[in-house]
Amino acid sequence: MIHLKTPLNLEKIKNIKAGTQIFLSGTIFSMRDKAHKKMVEENFYPLNLKNQTIFYMGPSPTRPGHKSGSCGPTTSARMDKWTPPFIKKTGIIGIIGKGERCQDVKEAMKGKVIYLLAFGGLGALYAKCVKKSEVVLFKEFGCEAVYKLEVNNMPLIVAQDIKGESIL
């Protein structure tokens, strides 16, 4: 079990092997289908995401008194089509999602991005890890907007390490 804090860098993650359980803390950005489509297909990158970690997630609305709605991962494979150009353009270093990736994405991540699995169907548990949540882009996309999240000890597992070794 390793504790990691964002922003990540190659030095922090170079020795973390696929299969390692981690607790992630710090700032992450939610992005899913609509944000990827808009950014990649319209070549529109208003956020500086260099060395940032993104989370494939669209939360449920936040109930009064809560810091976030339910917020577990969505299926990563739906983003496969856009991921290689997205990595190239943004310089992200971490992706949090659910499930397998296609070969092109695995290659694109190798040496550049660590792929972390969040556990599906545990949205309530992940909501409790969120200390702060705000929409920073594409408010009009509703739950598919880009949320900037401050998280504390999010339980994850390394699916593909920086060397390209994978447990999936």
């Binding site: 359980q21 449920s60 109930r63 809560h66 709605g69 917020c71 556990f119 949205g123 309530a124």
Partner: peptide
């Protein structure tokens, strides 16, 4: 790990019910 993940599933169910967070964000 399977046992650990199952424990997290049970914890999730408990949080959802007692603190009123949806079990999963995809309702």
């Amino acid at each position: 790990i399977a046992k650990h993940l199952t424990a997290l599933m049970l914890e999730n169910a408990k949080i959802a019910k007692t603190e009123m967070y949806p079990l999963c964000q995809d309702t």
